[in-house]
Amino acid sequence: LVRYRTISKIPQITLNFVDLKGDPFLASPTSDREIIAPKIKERTHNVTEKVTQVLSLGADVLPEYKLQAPRIHRWTILHYSPFKAVWDWLILLLVIYTAVFTPYSAAFLLKETEEGPPATECGYACQPLAVVDLIVDIMFIVDILINFRTTYVNANEEVVSHPGRIAVHYFKGWFLIDMVAAIPFDLLIFGSGSEELIGLLKTARLLRLVRVARKLDRYSEYGAAVLFLLMCTFALIAHWLACIWYAIGNMEQPHMDSRIGWLHNLGDQIGKPYNSSGLGGPSIKDKYVTALYFTFSSLTSVGFGNVSPNTNSEKIFSICVMLIGSLMYASIFGNVSAIIQRLYSGTARYHTQMLRVREFIRFHQIPNPLRQRLEEYFQHAWSYTNGIDMNAVLKGFPECLQADICLHLNRSLLQHCKPFRGATKGCLRALAMKFKTTHAPPGDTLVHAGDLLTALYFISRGSIEILRGDVVVAILGKNDIFGEPLNLYARPGKSNGDVRALTYCDLHKIHR
C-alpha cells in the first residue's frame, strides 16, 4: 500500500512540481520508500527539464536528425535550378540546329562534286560548318556529364541527390541515346576521305529529338503553341524528305545512260545542264529549293507536275512521300480545326451564355430598361472574369491554397485601402477568403433606401454616388468604403439613402 501511494504521487509531482519531503505519510521509514524516492526525484528532475525545454521552444527539443539540413553532394545540380533551365534551352537550340543542318550536310555532301578544292585539302579548321559541328559534339558530351550530376524525382516524389543513384537512373534511361548522339564521328573518321560515311553517321544526332519531343509535351495545353509546333514538325519532315529526294537524284545521276532524272530535267529547265562528264548542272541553292518544293507539294497532295519522278527509285520514294503525307494530314492537320476551336472556345461560351440571357429575357418578357441593365451587367461581368467562376475553380483546392490565391487576387485593395494598413498577414488572409466580388454598370442602383444592410462594401474600381431623395450626399471612388460596420450592432440596419454607380464599378463586399 505504501508503495502504491508513493507511485500514485508521481503525476502530481510531474505537473505541480511538489516535493515529496513535505508529505508526512511518505516520510515513514520503510525500505521500499527509501529505494523508490531517489528514482522519483530523478524522474521528476528529468520531466521538469523536458517541460522547461518545451515551454522555452528551444531548438534542442527536436531530434538531432530533424535539425540537420538535407545534404547535397558537391557538384550536384538541382533539376529545378536556373542554371539547369538555361542549359536545357541551350541544348534545345543545338538539337534544332542539328535537326536542320545534319540531314542537309549528309545529303548535299554525298558524292558532291561542286567546283573547288576537296575538304581534305583545305583542312578541318577552315570549314565553318565542321567547326560548328565540333562545338555541338562537345556541348552534347558536356550535357552527358551534367546529367550524371543532376537530381531527379523518383516514384515516391522524392528528390534524389545521391550521385550513385543518379548515375544508375541515367544509365537506365537516356544515357545510350545521348551517348550515340554525342559521338564525334568527324574526329574519329577525319582524314579518311569518307565524307559520305561521316554525313550518314552524323544523322545519329537526330535521336535527341525524342527527348525534345517529350520536353515539349508540357506545352500541349496551349493551343497556339501546339499549332506552332505542328507546323514546325511538318516543315521539318518536309526538309528531311527534300534532303533524301536530292540524295536519290544525286546518286543516280552519274550512272544513268539517259538523262531522265529530276536533276537533269531541272538543269535543262533553268539552262544549267550537266555536261557529258557529269559536272556542271544547277547550283546547290536551286537543287535544295526545288527538292523542298517537290516534297511540300507531295505532302499537301497538290502535285503540280513541273517536278516529277521519272526513275524507279524516284517513283518509289514519291509513293512513300504520299503515304507520309496522308498520315500527316490525319495526325496534324486533322487537329488544326480542334485547336482553332479551342482557341476561340471563350468567344463561343460568351455567345452561348448571351443567347441564354436573351432567351430568358424573351421568355419572361423583361421590360426594355431592365433588359438593357441585365445585358450590360452580363457584358461587364464577362469582360472582368472571362466567364470563369472563381468560386467553382477554387473549390477543388485546399483552404490554405485558397487563402493564398484570394490574398493575391485582392492584393491591390488590401495594400491601398486604409482600414487594412497594419493588419497582420493572417488577418488579411482571413479577410480575403470572405470577400465576394460584384460588378455594376453605370446607372445601376446597388442599394435602395430602406434596404437591409448586411454587408460592408469596398470599391475596387469606378465611382458611385450616394443620394437622399434627389440630393447627392457624397461621391465615392476607388478604395472608399460604404455599408454597415460589421458586428457593431446586434441587428442589421437599414439604408438611409440610395447608392448608384456612376461608372463601371468593381466592388468587394463582406457579409455579416
Rank of each mutant, 00 (worst) to 15 (best):
H79D: 01
K272Q: 01
N410F: 09
E375F: 09
Q127V: 06
L216N: 04
Y97T: 01
F175Q: 01
Y219P: 04
L90K: 01
D268K: 11
L134R: 07
L207Q: 01
D268T: 11
G223C: 11
W89F: 02
H416Y: 13
W262H: 01
E375W: 08
L200A: 04
W87C: 01
D178V: 01
G346F: 03
I135N: 01
F296Y: 04
A403T: 05
S220C: 13
A155E: 14
C406Q: 10
V180I: 11
E115I: 15
T438Q: 13
I166R: 01
S301V: 01
R205Q: 01
S326H: 01
A449Q: 10
A430K: 10
C400D: 04
I144H: 01
E359A: 05
R421W: 03
Y124W: 05
G123P: 05
N391H: 12
V212M: 06
K215G: 04
S383E: 09
Y344H: 12
G278K: 05
E115Q: 06
A449D: 13
I248E: 01
D133V: 01
F140T: 01
G261T: 03
S192I: 06
Q353P: 01
H239L: 01
L209Q: 01
Y293D: 01
F190G: 14
L292E: 01
A432M: 10
I144W: 01
W87A: 01
K285P: 01
Y350T: 01
D257M: 06
S301A: 13
S81V: 01
L230V: 08
C122V: 01
D133S: 12
D444R: 07
L401I: 12
A247D: 01
S298F: 03
L236E: 01
V142Y: 01
A155V: 11
G261Q: 02
F360Q: 01
R74M: 05
R259T: 12
E64G: 10
K285E: 11
Y293R: 01
M179N: 01
L92D: 01
Q372Y: 13
P70V: 06
S337A: 10
E64I: 10
H351N: 05
G426D: 04
V142S: 01
R421C: 13
F83A: 11
T113L: 03
A155Y: 11
G422I: 06
C126M: 01
S326N: 01
A235I: 11
I177D: 01
E64N: 13
P103L: 01
T113E: 10
R71P: 12
K84N: 05
F435S: 02
P254R: 14
A330K: 07
V142G: 05
D217W: 05
K215Q: 04
L209F: 12
F304M: 04
A225Y: 06
R211A: 01
F190L: 11
H169N: 09
F83M: 06
D257C: 01
N310F: 01
Y329A: 15
